[in-house]
């Protein structure tokens, strides 16, 4: 009778440990794509594409690009740069797509764990 109870405790303990491991794996797993922000070649931030948010990116020479992530898309809403090309580049949502601001040296790129099996993209 007592041995039976211990078996149950053992099974429950294994299930509990298994559950905790599964939970940890699930929480740390990189499921969706990320919005990676790089300034002058250095990665300064990485945000999940699935979470709506707004950020001000500090570019070089005091430049600022206002980044919005909403509804699975990312875009630069406004910027301090003179040409405003980054704002006109529109919304991005697929892995590999990027918004580039040359004056502020800011790159906003969608990165995904699996980007379609391609090493490098040709063309702009």
């Amino acid at each position: 009778m007592k041995a039976h109870l211990r078996d149950i405790i053992l099974i429950a303990a294994i299930l509990l440990i298994g559950g905790i491991i599964a939970l940890v794996l699930l929480l740390t797993r990189k499921t969706g794509a990320f919005v990676e922000v790089r300034v002058d070649g250095k990665t300064v931030a990485s945000y999940p594409l699935s979470e709506d948010a707004e950020y001000d990116i500090a570019g070089v020479n005091g430049g600022v690009n206002h980044l919005i992530i909403r509804g699975g898309e990312a875009w630069v809403e406004s910027a301090s740069c003179p040409d405003g090309l980054c704002v006109n580049m529109g919304h991005i949502r697929h892995a590999g797509a990027s918004v580039i601001c040359l004056p502020n040296k800011v790159i906003v790129e969608i990165v995904a764990p699996d980007s379609g099996g391609v090493d490098v993209v040709v063309g702009q």
């Binding site: 090493d119 490098v120 993209v121 040709v122």
Partner: peptide, 9 residues
Amino acid sequence: GGAWRCGIV
């Protein structure tokens, strides 16, 4: 050792 896979826009 694999060839580079270049995706063309």
